[in-house]
Write a protein that binds this DNA or RNA. Structure first.
Length: 195
DNA sequence: CATGGGATTGACT
DNA sequence: GTCAATCCCATGC
């Protein structure tokens, strides 16, 4: 319990499923994650330490937040010991608190459209680039880990990347309707990995 | 200093 | 299914 983020990044990615991301009055349960590690080219840390990747190589349990496509903000939890560049991308949440505020920020009503994607959930929770490097156990953005037993988790291939596309490092709650639109948990995603 | 490329989303054909 | 939006940063001159 002392350092839940310190272990192998794929184990951390699984452990985070069922945890709760909270920012202010908004919060949601994690239903989808992806693992990234500096040993594989899809990871930002693959190129080594740069100003951008410094957070990734820092101590585990911090937030790595960056802008994607000039439009969207992505939230990650840094994993593995200090000196190793690894993180878990939070890809989807099941909204639980502050739903009206999420609706206002997202401009959408349907629960399934509030946090079902990495760019959507940061918008719904009001997470910004300034949160990069923040301690996830001490806020302002926090993640509390699941206490009980794990839900059924499906592994599949990661979404939206062009390198190391075959690694089954995406994890999602089987059957959840709150996962992102890559269709994680679908029979297609499962068989894609099995093949 | 100029350029190119995204761990995406939503609107449109 | 296709495509543009739009900004940070890594790289190269």
């Amino acid at each position: 319990m002392s350092d839940p983020y310190r272990g192998p990044v794929c184990e951390v990615a699984r452990a985070l499923i069922g945890g709760v991301v909270r920012h202010g009055e908004t919060a949601g349960v994690i239903v989808e994650t992806e693992a990234y590690h500096d040993s594989e080219p899809a990871c930002h840390a693959y190129i080594g330490r740069t100003p951008r990747t410094l957070t990734l190589f820092g101590p585990p349990g911090r937030a790595y937040v960056y802008r994607s496509y000039g439009v969207h903000v992505m939230l990650n939890a840094v994993a593995e010991p200090d000196g190793i560049g690894a993180a878990v991308l939070i890809r989807a949440l099941e909204p639980c608190d502050g739903i009206e505020l999420m609706r206002a920020r997202r401009g959408r009503e349907a629960l399934e459209e509030l946090c079902s994607g990495p760019g959507k959930l940061t918008q719904a929770l009001g997470i910004e680039l300034v949160h990069n490097g923040g301690d996830l156990s001490g806020g302002p953005v926090t993640i509390s880990l699941r206490a009980g037993r794990s839900p059924q988790i499906v592994a599949s291939r990661r979404i939206g990347i062009t390198k190391a596309v075959d690694l089954p490092w995406r994890f999602s709650v089987r059957g959840s309707r709150f996962v992102s639109r890559g269709g994680a948990g679908s029979a297609a995603a499962v068989s894609r990995v099995a093949r």
